[in-house]
Design a protein around this nucleic acid. Structure first.
Lengths: 237, 237
DNA sequence: GAGTGGTCTAGACCACCAA
DNA sequence: TGGTGGTCTAGACCACTCC
Protein backbone atom coordinates (compact mmCIF):
# COMPACT_ATOMS: atom_id res chain seq x y z
CA UNK A 1 0.00 0.00 0.00
CA UNK A 2 2.99 2.34 -0.16
CA UNK A 3 2.84 5.39 -2.39
CA UNK A 4 3.59 4.64 -6.00
CA UNK A 5 6.75 6.03 -7.54
CA UNK A 6 6.10 9.13 -9.66
CA UNK A 7 6.43 7.63 -13.08
CA UNK A 8 6.59 9.57 -16.29
CA UNK A 9 4.07 7.22 -17.86
CA UNK A 10 1.65 7.62 -14.95
CA UNK A 11 1.90 11.39 -15.07
CA UNK A 12 1.14 11.46 -18.79
CA UNK A 13 -1.82 9.11 -18.29
CA UNK A 14 -3.27 11.36 -15.61
CA UNK A 15 -2.82 14.50 -17.65
CA UNK A 16 -4.51 13.05 -20.70
CA UNK A 17 -7.24 11.40 -18.67
CA UNK A 18 -8.05 14.68 -17.00
CA UNK A 19 -8.35 16.45 -20.34
CA UNK A 20 -10.65 13.74 -21.64
CA UNK A 21 -12.86 13.60 -18.57
CA UNK A 22 -13.33 17.34 -18.58
CA UNK A 23 -14.43 17.22 -22.17
CA UNK A 24 -11.53 19.20 -23.60
CA UNK A 25 -10.96 16.19 -25.79
CA UNK A 26 -14.37 15.02 -26.97
CA UNK A 27 -15.23 11.42 -27.95
CA UNK A 28 -14.08 10.69 -31.50
CA UNK A 29 -11.60 13.57 -31.35
CA UNK A 30 -8.11 12.91 -32.72
CA UNK A 31 -5.13 13.34 -30.45
CA UNK A 32 -2.09 15.32 -31.60
CA UNK A 33 0.74 13.42 -33.28
CA UNK A 34 2.89 11.21 -31.08
CA UNK A 35 5.94 13.36 -31.73
CA UNK A 36 4.00 16.47 -30.74
CA UNK A 37 2.77 14.83 -27.56
CA UNK A 38 6.21 13.57 -26.63
CA UNK A 39 7.46 17.16 -26.95
CA UNK A 40 4.59 18.47 -24.86
CA UNK A 41 5.36 16.00 -22.09
CA UNK A 42 9.10 16.33 -22.61
CA UNK A 43 9.81 12.66 -23.10
CA UNK A 44 10.60 10.12 -25.80
CA UNK A 45 8.13 8.59 -28.17
CA UNK A 46 8.62 5.17 -26.57
CA UNK A 47 7.57 6.45 -23.17
CA UNK A 48 4.72 8.46 -24.61
CA UNK A 49 3.45 5.42 -26.49
CA UNK A 50 3.57 3.37 -23.32
CA UNK A 51 1.18 5.86 -21.75
CA UNK A 52 -1.12 5.78 -24.78
CA UNK A 53 -1.19 1.99 -24.69
CA UNK A 54 -2.23 2.08 -21.03
CA UNK A 55 -5.05 4.49 -21.75
CA UNK A 56 -6.04 2.24 -24.63
CA UNK A 57 -6.18 -0.73 -22.24
CA UNK A 58 -8.54 1.24 -20.01
CA UNK A 59 -10.74 2.00 -22.99
CA UNK A 60 -10.32 5.78 -22.81
CA UNK A 61 -8.66 6.10 -26.18
CA UNK A 62 -8.24 3.86 -29.20
CA UNK A 63 -6.18 3.87 -32.34
CA UNK A 64 -6.86 3.33 -35.98
CA UNK A 65 -3.90 1.71 -37.55
CA UNK A 66 -1.58 4.27 -39.13
CA UNK A 67 -4.17 6.99 -38.68
CA UNK A 68 -3.61 8.00 -35.10
CA UNK A 69 -5.16 8.01 -31.65
CA UNK A 70 -8.74 9.01 -30.87
CA UNK A 71 -10.86 9.55 -27.80
CA UNK A 72 -13.11 6.52 -27.33
CA UNK A 73 -16.89 6.87 -27.56
CA UNK A 74 -19.06 5.26 -24.92
CA UNK A 75 -19.38 1.49 -24.80
CA UNK A 76 -22.33 -0.38 -26.20
CA UNK A 77 -24.30 -2.35 -23.62
CA UNK A 78 -24.74 -5.95 -24.75
CA UNK A 79 -27.46 -7.70 -22.81
CA UNK A 80 -27.12 -11.48 -23.05
CA UNK A 81 -30.63 -12.14 -21.79
CA UNK A 82 -32.60 -9.72 -23.93
CA UNK A 83 -31.05 -11.21 -27.03
CA UNK A 84 -31.91 -8.33 -29.24
CA UNK A 85 -29.82 -8.19 -32.43
CA UNK A 86 -27.01 -5.82 -33.25
CA UNK A 87 -28.89 -3.16 -35.21
CA UNK A 88 -31.74 -3.01 -32.71
CA UNK A 89 -29.32 -2.86 -29.78
CA UNK A 90 -27.33 -0.03 -31.30
CA UNK A 91 -30.38 1.98 -32.31
CA UNK A 92 -31.99 1.54 -28.91
CA UNK A 93 -28.89 3.15 -27.47
CA UNK A 94 -29.14 6.15 -29.73
CA UNK A 95 -26.45 5.33 -32.23
CA UNK A 96 -26.23 4.26 -35.82
CA UNK A 97 -25.36 0.72 -36.85
CA UNK A 98 -24.07 -0.56 -40.17
CA UNK A 99 -22.99 -3.97 -41.39
CA UNK A 100 -20.56 -4.83 -44.15
CA UNK A 101 -20.60 -8.28 -45.68
CA UNK A 102 -17.03 -9.53 -46.08
CA UNK A 103 -17.65 -13.03 -47.43
CA UNK A 104 -20.28 -15.75 -47.57
CA UNK A 105 -19.89 -19.27 -48.87
CA UNK A 106 -20.45 -22.97 -48.29
CA UNK A 107 -17.27 -24.64 -47.07
CA UNK A 108 -16.00 -27.60 -45.04
CA UNK A 109 -16.46 -27.02 -41.32
CA UNK A 110 -13.48 -26.84 -39.00
CA UNK A 111 -13.34 -29.39 -36.22
CA UNK A 112 -14.26 -26.72 -33.69
CA UNK A 113 -17.38 -25.72 -35.60
CA UNK A 114 -18.42 -29.36 -36.09
CA UNK A 115 -18.18 -29.84 -32.33
CA UNK A 116 -20.23 -26.74 -31.52
CA UNK A 117 -22.98 -27.59 -33.98
CA UNK A 118 -22.76 -31.34 -33.30
CA UNK A 119 -22.17 -32.09 -36.96
CA UNK A 120 -20.40 -35.20 -38.27
CA UNK A 121 -16.79 -34.75 -39.40
CA UNK A 122 -16.22 -33.24 -42.86
CA UNK A 123 -19.65 -31.59 -42.89
CA UNK A 124 -20.15 -28.49 -44.94
CA UNK A 125 -21.33 -25.29 -43.29
CA UNK A 126 -22.30 -21.86 -44.50
CA UNK A 127 -19.75 -19.32 -43.36
CA UNK A 128 -20.70 -15.65 -43.27
CA UNK A 129 -18.10 -13.07 -42.28
CA UNK A 130 -19.25 -9.57 -41.44
CA UNK A 131 -17.92 -6.34 -40.07
CA UNK A 132 -20.19 -4.22 -37.92
CA UNK A 133 -19.89 -0.54 -37.15
CA UNK A 134 -21.32 1.91 -34.66
CA UNK A 135 -21.41 5.47 -35.92
CA UNK A 136 -18.93 4.45 -38.58
CA UNK A 137 -16.41 2.90 -36.20
CA UNK A 138 -15.69 -0.80 -36.77
CA UNK A 139 -16.30 -2.53 -33.44
CA UNK A 140 -17.20 -6.14 -34.20
CA UNK A 141 -15.91 -8.77 -36.58
CA UNK A 142 -18.20 -11.79 -36.68
CA UNK A 143 -18.05 -15.20 -38.32
CA UNK A 144 -21.38 -17.00 -38.52
CA UNK A 145 -21.56 -20.74 -39.18
CA UNK A 146 -24.96 -22.03 -40.28
CA UNK A 147 -26.15 -25.59 -40.54
CA UNK A 148 -27.00 -25.64 -44.29
CA UNK A 149 -29.77 -28.14 -43.72
CA UNK A 150 -31.97 -25.40 -42.28
CA UNK A 151 -31.04 -22.49 -44.50
CA UNK A 152 -31.28 -23.52 -48.15
CA UNK A 153 -30.74 -20.60 -50.52
CA UNK A 154 -29.69 -18.13 -47.87
CA UNK A 155 -26.54 -17.25 -49.80
CA UNK A 156 -28.76 -15.49 -52.35
CA UNK A 157 -30.27 -13.19 -49.74
CA UNK A 158 -29.04 -9.79 -48.62
CA UNK A 159 -26.68 -10.80 -45.85
CA UNK A 160 -25.84 -7.34 -44.63
CA UNK A 161 -29.15 -7.18 -42.78
CA UNK A 162 -29.99 -8.83 -39.48
CA UNK A 163 -29.75 -12.62 -39.72
CA UNK A 164 -32.21 -12.88 -36.86
CA UNK A 165 -34.89 -11.19 -38.95
CA UNK A 166 -33.95 -13.12 -42.08
CA UNK A 167 -34.31 -16.42 -40.20
CA UNK A 168 -37.75 -15.44 -39.02
CA UNK A 169 -39.04 -14.05 -42.31
CA UNK A 170 -37.71 -16.63 -44.76
CA UNK A 171 -37.45 -19.75 -42.66
CA UNK A 172 -39.86 -19.29 -39.77
CA UNK A 173 -36.99 -19.90 -37.38
CA UNK A 174 -36.27 -17.93 -34.27
CA UNK A 175 -33.81 -18.37 -31.45
CA UNK A 176 -34.55 -20.56 -28.48
CA UNK A 177 -31.75 -21.50 -26.11
CA UNK A 178 -28.43 -19.71 -26.59
CA UNK A 179 -25.08 -20.60 -25.03
CA UNK A 180 -22.44 -17.92 -24.58
CA UNK A 181 -18.77 -18.18 -23.92
CA UNK A 182 -16.78 -15.03 -23.24
CA UNK A 183 -13.02 -14.94 -23.48
CA UNK A 184 -10.77 -11.92 -23.00
CA UNK A 185 -7.89 -12.46 -25.41
CA UNK A 186 -5.90 -10.85 -28.18
CA UNK A 187 -7.65 -10.58 -31.52
CA UNK A 188 -6.67 -13.15 -34.13
CA UNK A 189 -5.20 -11.87 -37.37
CA UNK A 190 -8.40 -11.91 -39.45
CA UNK A 191 -10.31 -9.96 -36.82
CA UNK A 192 -7.48 -7.51 -36.19
CA UNK A 193 -7.15 -6.75 -39.89
CA UNK A 194 -10.87 -6.25 -40.38
CA UNK A 195 -11.14 -4.00 -37.34
CA UNK A 196 -7.97 -2.18 -38.36
CA UNK A 197 -6.55 -2.89 -34.95
CA UNK A 198 -2.86 -3.48 -34.43
CA UNK A 199 -2.08 -7.18 -34.20
CA UNK A 200 -2.11 -8.58 -30.72
CA UNK A 201 -4.09 -5.82 -29.10
CA UNK A 202 -6.61 -6.98 -26.51
CA UNK A 203 -10.11 -7.91 -27.56
CA UNK A 204 -13.16 -9.79 -26.42
CA UNK A 205 -14.07 -13.08 -28.02
CA UNK A 206 -17.70 -14.14 -27.64
CA UNK A 207 -18.94 -17.46 -28.93
CA UNK A 208 -22.68 -17.96 -29.30
CA UNK A 209 -24.23 -21.33 -30.01
CA UNK A 210 -27.85 -20.92 -30.99
CA UNK A 211 -30.77 -23.32 -30.92
CA UNK A 212 -34.12 -22.58 -32.50
CA UNK A 213 -37.61 -22.80 -31.01
CA UNK A 214 -37.56 -26.59 -31.50
CA UNK A 215 -34.24 -27.04 -29.72
CA UNK A 216 -32.28 -27.75 -32.92
CA UNK A 217 -28.72 -26.40 -33.11
CA UNK A 218 -29.00 -24.03 -36.02
CA UNK A 219 -25.89 -21.88 -36.04
CA UNK A 220 -23.01 -20.51 -34.06
CA UNK A 221 -21.31 -17.12 -34.10
CA UNK A 222 -17.70 -16.30 -33.37
CA UNK A 223 -17.69 -12.65 -32.41
CA UNK A 224 -14.57 -10.56 -31.95
CA UNK A 225 -15.16 -7.20 -30.31
CA UNK A 226 -12.89 -4.28 -29.74
CA UNK A 227 -12.33 -4.61 -26.02
CA UNK A 228 -13.23 -0.97 -25.42
CA UNK A 229 -16.48 -0.98 -27.39
CA UNK A 230 -18.69 -3.15 -25.24
CA UNK A 231 -20.07 -3.74 -21.78
CA UNK A 232 -21.88 -7.02 -21.15
CA UNK A 233 -24.96 -7.41 -18.99
CA UNK A 234 -26.67 -10.53 -17.78
CA UNK A 235 -29.16 -11.55 -15.17
CA UNK A 236 -29.57 -14.93 -13.52
CA UNK A 237 -31.78 -16.62 -10.98
CA UNK B 1 -5.71 -10.02 -47.02
CA UNK B 2 -2.14 -9.62 -48.28
CA UNK B 3 0.69 -11.50 -46.63
CA UNK B 4 1.86 -9.87 -43.44
CA UNK B 5 5.35 -8.42 -43.32
CA UNK B 6 7.83 -10.68 -41.58
CA UNK B 7 8.18 -8.87 -38.29
CA UNK B 8 10.71 -9.67 -35.65
CA UNK B 9 8.02 -9.54 -32.99
CA UNK B 10 5.77 -11.92 -34.92
CA UNK B 11 8.59 -14.38 -35.45
CA UNK B 12 9.43 -14.42 -31.76
CA UNK B 13 5.77 -14.90 -30.86
CA UNK B 14 5.46 -17.87 -33.17
CA UNK B 15 8.63 -19.48 -31.92
CA UNK B 16 7.61 -19.20 -28.28
CA UNK B 17 4.05 -20.22 -28.99
CA UNK B 18 5.23 -23.32 -30.75
CA UNK B 19 7.42 -24.31 -27.81
CA UNK B 20 4.54 -23.80 -25.41
CA UNK B 21 1.98 -25.69 -27.47
CA UNK B 22 4.28 -28.64 -27.88
CA UNK B 23 4.74 -28.81 -24.15
CA UNK B 24 8.43 -28.00 -24.10
CA UNK B 25 7.47 -25.16 -21.82
CA UNK B 26 4.91 -26.53 -19.37
CA UNK B 27 2.22 -24.45 -17.63
CA UNK B 28 3.64 -22.64 -14.63
CA UNK B 29 7.15 -22.96 -16.04
CA UNK B 30 9.39 -19.88 -15.88
CA UNK B 31 10.78 -18.45 -19.08
CA UNK B 32 14.48 -17.55 -19.35
CA UNK B 33 15.54 -14.01 -18.49
CA UNK B 34 14.61 -11.28 -20.92
CA UNK B 35 18.25 -10.57 -21.68
CA UNK B 36 18.83 -14.25 -22.41
CA UNK B 37 15.82 -14.41 -24.68
CA UNK B 38 16.82 -11.26 -26.52
CA UNK B 39 20.20 -12.88 -27.20
CA UNK B 40 18.58 -16.10 -28.36
CA UNK B 41 16.39 -14.21 -30.81
CA UNK B 42 19.17 -11.78 -31.65
CA UNK B 43 17.23 -8.63 -30.88
CA UNK B 44 16.90 -5.90 -28.28
CA UNK B 45 15.08 -6.20 -24.99
CA UNK B 46 12.47 -3.68 -26.14
CA UNK B 47 11.53 -5.79 -29.14
CA UNK B 48 11.62 -8.99 -27.14
CA UNK B 49 9.35 -7.46 -24.50
CA UNK B 50 6.90 -6.39 -27.18
CA UNK B 51 6.59 -10.02 -28.19
CA UNK B 52 6.12 -11.13 -24.59
CA UNK B 53 3.41 -8.52 -24.08
CA UNK B 54 1.55 -9.82 -27.13
CA UNK B 55 1.68 -13.38 -25.86
CA UNK B 56 0.49 -12.07 -22.51
CA UNK B 57 -2.48 -10.41 -24.23
CA UNK B 58 -3.37 -13.75 -25.78
CA UNK B 59 -3.21 -15.40 -22.38
CA UNK B 60 -0.40 -17.79 -23.27
CA UNK B 61 2.06 -16.39 -20.74
CA UNK B 62 1.82 -14.09 -17.76
CA UNK B 63 4.21 -12.21 -15.57
CA UNK B 64 4.66 -11.79 -11.88
CA UNK B 65 5.98 -8.35 -11.22
CA UNK B 66 9.77 -8.33 -10.94
CA UNK B 67 9.83 -12.12 -10.86
CA UNK B 68 9.66 -12.94 -14.52
CA UNK B 69 7.50 -14.53 -17.17
CA UNK B 70 5.65 -17.83 -16.80
CA UNK B 71 3.62 -20.12 -19.00
CA UNK B 72 -0.07 -19.60 -18.21
CA UNK B 73 -2.14 -22.44 -16.73
CA UNK B 74 -5.53 -23.20 -18.19
CA UNK B 75 -8.39 -20.76 -17.61
CA UNK B 76 -11.06 -21.28 -15.00
CA UNK B 77 -14.57 -21.63 -16.39
CA UNK B 78 -16.94 -19.22 -14.64
CA UNK B 79 -20.56 -20.16 -15.21
CA UNK B 80 -22.85 -17.22 -14.55
CA UNK B 81 -25.97 -19.37 -14.38
CA UNK B 82 -24.79 -22.14 -12.07
CA UNK B 83 -23.75 -19.56 -9.52
CA UNK B 84 -21.51 -21.86 -7.62
CA UNK B 85 -18.99 -20.06 -5.43
CA UNK B 86 -15.29 -19.64 -6.02
CA UNK B 87 -13.94 -22.53 -3.94
CA UNK B 88 -16.52 -24.99 -5.26
CA UNK B 89 -15.91 -23.85 -8.84
CA UNK B 90 -12.17 -24.25 -8.59
CA UNK B 91 -12.35 -27.62 -6.88
CA UNK B 92 -14.87 -28.93 -9.39
CA UNK B 93 -12.30 -28.14 -12.07
CA UNK B 94 -9.58 -30.09 -10.33
CA UNK B 95 -7.58 -27.27 -8.84
CA UNK B 96 -6.94 -25.85 -5.43
CA UNK B 97 -8.46 -22.58 -4.24
CA UNK B 98 -7.37 -20.31 -1.44
CA UNK B 99 -8.62 -16.98 -0.17
CA UNK B 100 -6.70 -14.28 1.65
CA UNK B 101 -8.58 -11.65 3.61
CA UNK B 102 -7.05 -8.23 2.91
CA UNK B 103 -9.39 -5.99 4.89
CA UNK B 104 -12.88 -5.88 6.37
CA UNK B 105 -14.60 -2.91 7.94
CA UNK B 106 -17.71 -0.78 8.17
CA UNK B 107 -17.32 2.41 6.17
CA UNK B 108 -19.26 5.09 4.28
CA UNK B 109 -20.46 3.81 0.92
CA UNK B 110 -19.28 5.40 -2.29
CA UNK B 111 -21.94 6.90 -4.52
CA UNK B 112 -21.56 3.99 -6.94
CA UNK B 113 -22.16 1.41 -4.23
CA UNK B 114 -25.16 3.35 -2.87
CA UNK B 115 -26.68 3.29 -6.34
CA UNK B 116 -26.10 -0.43 -6.85
CA UNK B 117 -27.57 -1.37 -3.47
CA UNK B 118 -30.25 1.34 -3.61
CA UNK B 119 -29.11 2.81 -0.33
CA UNK B 120 -29.67 6.42 0.73
CA UNK B 121 -26.67 8.75 0.43
CA UNK B 122 -24.06 8.60 3.19
CA UNK B 123 -25.07 5.07 4.17
CA UNK B 124 -22.52 2.83 5.80
CA UNK B 125 -21.63 -0.48 4.20
CA UNK B 126 -19.46 -3.40 5.15
CA UNK B 127 -16.51 -3.60 2.81
CA UNK B 128 -14.59 -6.87 2.53
CA UNK B 129 -11.50 -7.03 0.30
CA UNK B 130 -10.12 -10.42 -0.59
CA UNK B 131 -7.53 -11.98 -2.82
CA UNK B 132 -8.24 -15.37 -4.33
CA UNK B 133 -5.79 -17.86 -5.70
CA UNK B 134 -5.86 -20.94 -7.88
CA UNK B 135 -3.02 -23.35 -7.21
CA UNK B 136 -1.22 -20.52 -5.46
CA UNK B 137 -1.55 -18.02 -8.31
CA UNK B 138 -3.44 -14.83 -7.49
CA UNK B 139 -6.19 -14.52 -10.10
CA UNK B 140 -8.99 -12.49 -8.52
CA UNK B 141 -9.17 -9.39 -6.38
CA UNK B 142 -12.67 -8.84 -5.03
CA UNK B 143 -14.34 -6.09 -3.06
CA UNK B 144 -17.63 -7.08 -1.43
CA UNK B 145 -20.09 -4.48 -0.20
CA UNK B 146 -22.74 -5.75 2.21
CA UNK B 147 -25.86 -4.00 3.41
CA UNK B 148 -25.11 -4.02 7.17
CA UNK B 149 -28.80 -4.27 8.02
CA UNK B 150 -28.79 -7.93 7.04
CA UNK B 151 -25.39 -9.00 8.31
CA UNK B 152 -24.97 -7.91 11.93
CA UNK B 153 -21.78 -9.25 13.48
CA UNK B 154 -20.35 -10.67 10.29
CA UNK B 155 -17.07 -8.81 10.84
CA UNK B 156 -16.33 -11.21 13.70
CA UNK B 157 -16.62 -14.27 11.47
CA UNK B 158 -13.91 -15.99 9.51
CA UNK B 159 -14.09 -14.04 6.26
CA UNK B 160 -11.60 -16.09 4.32
CA UNK B 161 -14.22 -18.77 3.76
CA UNK B 162 -17.05 -18.67 1.25
CA UNK B 163 -19.43 -15.79 1.97
CA UNK B 164 -22.17 -17.74 0.21
CA UNK B 165 -21.94 -20.48 2.83
CA UNK B 166 -21.60 -18.00 5.66
CA UNK B 167 -24.76 -16.19 4.58
CA UNK B 168 -26.69 -19.44 4.55
CA UNK B 169 -25.36 -20.84 7.81
CA UNK B 170 -25.44 -17.73 10.01
CA UNK B 171 -28.18 -15.66 8.45
CA UNK B 172 -30.41 -18.07 6.56
CA UNK B 173 -29.85 -16.00 3.45
CA UNK B 174 -29.14 -17.35 0.01
CA UNK B 175 -28.88 -15.76 -3.38
CA UNK B 176 -31.92 -15.15 -5.55
CA UNK B 177 -31.65 -12.91 -8.58
CA UNK B 178 -28.14 -11.80 -9.59
CA UNK B 179 -27.19 -9.09 -12.06
CA UNK B 180 -23.83 -9.20 -13.82
CA UNK B 181 -21.93 -6.58 -15.67
CA UNK B 182 -18.73 -7.53 -17.47
CA UNK B 183 -16.22 -4.95 -18.60
CA UNK B 184 -12.86 -5.60 -20.27
CA UNK B 185 -10.59 -2.87 -18.97
CA UNK B 186 -7.25 -2.21 -17.34
CA UNK B 187 -6.98 -3.13 -13.69
CA UNK B 188 -7.23 -0.25 -11.21
CA UNK B 189 -4.29 0.35 -8.93
CA UNK B 190 -5.61 -1.54 -5.89
CA UNK B 191 -6.37 -4.64 -7.94
CA UNK B 192 -3.12 -4.49 -9.87
CA UNK B 193 -1.09 -4.26 -6.68
CA UNK B 194 -2.92 -7.11 -5.00
CA UNK B 195 -2.60 -9.35 -8.06
CA UNK B 196 1.02 -8.27 -8.50
CA UNK B 197 0.22 -7.30 -12.03
CA UNK B 198 1.96 -4.40 -13.71
CA UNK B 199 -0.20 -1.28 -13.64
CA UNK B 200 -2.41 -0.82 -16.65
CA UNK B 201 -2.29 -4.37 -17.88
CA UNK B 202 -5.59 -5.68 -19.22
CA UNK B 203 -8.08 -7.30 -16.89
CA UNK B 204 -11.70 -8.25 -16.59
CA UNK B 205 -13.99 -6.32 -14.29
CA UNK B 206 -17.15 -8.15 -13.22
CA UNK B 207 -19.78 -6.46 -11.09
CA UNK B 208 -22.35 -8.67 -9.35
CA UNK B 209 -25.41 -7.24 -7.65
CA UNK B 210 -27.07 -9.90 -5.53
CA UNK B 211 -30.59 -10.23 -4.21
CA UNK B 212 -31.64 -12.85 -1.67
CA UNK B 213 -34.52 -15.32 -1.79
CA UNK B 214 -36.93 -12.53 -0.79
CA UNK B 215 -35.77 -10.19 -3.52
CA UNK B 216 -33.90 -7.86 -1.15
CA UNK B 217 -30.65 -6.32 -2.44
CA UNK B 218 -28.17 -7.76 0.00
CA UNK B 219 -24.72 -7.11 -1.39
CA UNK B 220 -22.64 -6.39 -4.45
CA UNK B 221 -19.22 -7.59 -5.52
CA UNK B 222 -16.64 -5.78 -7.60
CA UNK B 223 -14.44 -8.49 -9.03
CA UNK B 224 -11.18 -7.87 -10.87
CA UNK B 225 -9.82 -10.89 -12.68
CA UNK B 226 -6.56 -11.46 -14.44
CA UNK B 227 -7.73 -11.40 -18.03
CA UNK B 228 -5.99 -14.67 -18.80
CA UNK B 229 -7.36 -16.63 -15.86
CA UNK B 230 -11.01 -16.94 -16.74
CA UNK B 231 -13.51 -17.99 -19.37
CA UNK B 232 -17.14 -17.03 -18.83
CA UNK B 233 -20.10 -19.20 -19.67
CA UNK B 234 -23.77 -18.36 -19.72
CA UNK B 235 -26.96 -19.77 -21.11
CA UNK B 236 -30.13 -17.91 -21.98
CA UNK B 237 -33.61 -18.62 -23.28
C1' DG C 1 25.88 -9.12 -4.27
C1' DA C 2 24.58 -10.73 -8.77
C1' DG C 3 21.09 -10.81 -11.75
C1' DT C 4 16.43 -9.61 -12.84
C1' DG C 5 12.66 -6.94 -14.55
C1' DG C 6 10.91 -1.94 -14.80
C1' DT C 7 11.77 2.22 -16.82
C1' DC C 8 13.79 5.57 -19.78
C1' DT C 9 16.89 7.91 -23.40
C1' DA C 10 18.01 9.35 -28.14
C1' DG C 11 18.11 8.32 -31.89
C1' DA C 12 16.89 5.54 -36.77
C1' DC C 13 14.39 3.66 -41.05
C1' DC C 14 10.24 2.32 -43.37
C1' DA C 15 5.44 2.12 -45.09
C1' DC C 16 1.53 4.37 -45.35
C1' DC C 17 -1.86 8.39 -45.28
C1' DA C 18 -3.22 12.80 -46.38
C1' DA C 19 -2.55 16.95 -48.75
C1' DT D 1 5.71 14.78 -50.72
C1' DG D 2 5.84 15.63 -45.97
C1' DG D 3 4.35 13.95 -41.84
C1' DT D 4 2.47 10.10 -39.51
C1' DG D 5 2.51 5.86 -36.97
C1' DG D 6 4.96 1.16 -36.82
C1' DT D 7 9.08 -0.86 -35.83
C1' DC D 8 13.70 -1.39 -34.22
C1' DT D 9 18.54 -0.35 -32.25
C1' DA D 10 21.89 0.08 -28.44
C1' DG D 11 22.54 1.43 -24.83
C1' DA D 12 21.52 3.25 -19.48
C1' DC D 13 20.09 3.41 -14.38
C1' DC D 14 17.29 1.80 -10.61
C1' DA D 15 14.70 -1.19 -7.42
C1' DC D 16 13.82 -5.35 -6.39
C1' DT D 17 14.43 -10.72 -5.96
C1' DC D 18 16.92 -14.42 -4.97
C1' DC D 19 20.91 -16.60 -3.53
Amino acid sequence: MQALPPRAVTAICHALQEQIEHGLLAPGCKLPAERKLSEVFDTTRITLREALVQLEARGLIYREERRGWFVAPERLTYDLIERSHFHAMVQAQGREASTELLSARLQPATAAVCARLQLPPLSSVIQICRLRRINGRAVLYAEHYLNPEYFAGILDCDLSQSLTELYERHYGIHYGRVRFEILPTALPVAAAQALKVSAGSPGLHITRVNSDQHGRLIDCDLEYWRHDAVRIRAEAG
